[in-house]
């Protein structure tokens, strides 16, 4: 697992990040955490857990943090596979392992996790409705059919990582990843993953109304491009 890098965007996750990192590093020693200007001392916890730390001087959003982490990781030429992972502990290492198996054995460039193929434990109804609408919207605007478009768990190879240039700083970055797939004809697949929603992850979740902001930015981008 020396050729795998886990990229984790972190924003104010001091309470959980140490345990999440300890758990991840048991299987994958090379973890890059991007501290997106946290004010709660997340950075110290990241260093304590022994992960590589890249610190944004200002808060720039999750998409921007992912871009930073991927850029930092791709400078390391030993890395062949890149994994994006959420900081709040909602993803499982077993799923990362099975996604890595798929990307190594099948001829695909990116494997995305889908909670609707798998199961999402304790998802609220609002979240479900908003996500389902977001998936419809994404499938329509991107032309790429997926069952879960806004899942933070993704595994991709180096040629995919080299193409990534996320400019939409917030959650709208999910649509940019699909754009990269379409424009470069990358091969993609989805596999079921389990997501565990805890009170903590729910409290960190975004407001359903933010979907409106994302939809506006995605549409504007489609027109102006």
């Amino acid at each position: 697992m020396k050729d795998v890098c886990i990229v984790i965007p972190v924003y104010n996750e001091r309470k959980v990040i140490y345990d999440v990192l300890r758990n991840v590093r048991k299987s994958f020693p090379y973890v890059v955490c991007v501290d997106d200007g946290s004010k709660d001392g997340s950075a110290e916890e990241i260093l304590r857990a022994g992960a590589a730390l890249v610190r944004h001087p200002i808060n720039m959003g999750q998409g921007a943090a992912l871009q930073t982490g991927i850029e930092f990781a791709r400078n390391n030429k030993k890395i062949k596979y890149f994994v994006t992972f959420d900081a709040d502990g909602q993803h499982r290492i077993e799923d990362v392992n099975s996604m890595l198996d798929v990307i190594k054995k099948k001829n695909v460039d990116i494997v995305m996790g889908s909670r609707f193929l798998g199961e999402a434990v304790d998802m609220t109804l609002t979240k479900k409705v908003v996500l389902k609408l977001a998936i419809r919207f994404s499938n329509f605007t991107s032309g790429i059919k997926l069952t879960d478009t806004h899942n933070g768990l993704r595994v991709f190879n180096r040629s995919f990582a080299e193409k990534i240039q996320i400019t939409m700083s917030d959650m709208a970055h999910a649509s940019e990843i699909l754009e990269i797939i379409r424009e470069n004809n990358f091969k993609y697949t989805e596999i079921p993953v389990k997501i565990h929603y805890t009170d903590y992850s729910r409290s960190k979740g975004q407001s359903a109304l933010n979907a409106v902001n994302i939809a506006f930015d995605v549409l504007l981008r489609r027109i102006t491009k």
Binding site: A52, V54, H56, I58, M60, A64, E71, N75
Partner: peptide
Amino acid sequence: QQDLIYRLARQIAILEAQSNE
């Protein structure tokens, strides 16, 4: 403009992390 600022900030963050490493 925001994108330009973010790119600058990203380079600062990466350079700093590399020198720490």
